[in-house]
Design a protein around this nucleic acid. Sequence first.
DNA 1: CGCGCGATGTCAGCATCTGTCATCACCCGC
DNA 2: GCGGGTGATGACAGATGCTGACATCGCGCG
Lengths: 195, 195
Amino acid sequence: MARWQPGAAERMRGAALDLFVERGYDATTAADIAAAAGLTERTFYRHFTDKREVLFWGSDEFEASFLDPIDALPPDAPAMTVVVAAVVGGAGRFTPERRDFATLRAGIVDATPPLRERERDKMARLASLVAQRLIGRGVPATDAQLAAHSGVTVFTTAFARWVAGDARSPEALCADLFDDLARLTGQLNSRTETV
Amino acid sequence: MARWQPGAAERMRGAALDLFVERGYDATTAADIAAAAGLTERTFYRHFTDKREVLFWGSDEFEASFLDPIDALPPDAPAMTVVVAAVVGGAGRFTPERRDFATLRAGIVDATPPLRERERDKMARLASLVAQRLIGRGVPATDAQLAAHSGVTVFTTAFARWVAGDARSPEALCADLFDDLARLTGQLNSRTETV
DNA sequence: CGCGCGATGTCAGCATCTGTCATCACCCGC
DNA sequence: GCGGGTGATGACAGATGCTGACATCGCGCG
């Protein structure tokens, strides 16, 4: 028999989710989570840099689902084409069977300021990574920033609607929101009216 | 003679900035900051909810400089017009004589993950406030989200360039970036080509 | 003169996070 | 098999972040 049960991190993630739902984030200590998984506080911090981080596993795969589609595009693809591909790729991760979990998790994150902070940081980091790829493709730095962050805003907004119960798929929502964005920013041209 | 010197918060802000520059954020304790201002750690936490918050005073005025211009607009102003007014209003706070301070502070914030997190949170909160005003004006919620966050992205990008030494004023930078954004999102229309 | 107000000090205490060392099943080479 | 290295864990100590409770005392007001 193995000295330790395998899947320590997985067990702690599950325990954390349960405890956060049951008594809230603040009222749950790292030691509580570890104990619920049959481990000690010190081991918790060996698997997660933060108490918060226990709700943010899989960030690498999440980021990859945005970044991988970029590499499949021709090098001369327009900046917004790259961004749309990235966002659609990321949105594709969220299949209907994940909705219950996503809703549960989003409820906890939204209700907990420090978790919201971390979530926003992750999304900002994602935007920076996308921008970096754009810059690597020769897009000017400011354009890359604007395009990447716009894409992440579209994703975040679409995701929020999906979690809130919108029947459309995340990809469809993103497509609609890109159209909305184009329409909105089209209002900007009416100032100068130059083409 | 007064029992306490006035301006406790101000003194701690100054001391914090000095200490963060001198030895870094992590190596500076809240007690260090308080002691440098002739106060105790407990008093520090009476003035600031967080150790981080000592670098984020004046958030209310900052937000107000975005929100106040909105109220001056007619109720039927287009969403992006409202956003542009807000962003220009916010950018107007940053006059040339503030650049040295802004650069110093930005250096600390950028170099310190927890401070970056807080900064991003503040900007996201600002975007939410702008979106709320838009919704109050009858703009659909998703449009409001997209427009407000796009505006904040423009501001953040402009601010970064200003701090990095761009000679243009923040307002001018914002104007240019709004044009860039319109041009970029214009790429989206080439997909459907419908008007 | 006395009384309350308000900013501060003092102290205790819990939670977050880190460094360090010991433990012990497992695996690998001999 | 057998002995040593490996790696995840436990145990412990400690610094720091942050909060609650209570005491202090100049100041202004009646």
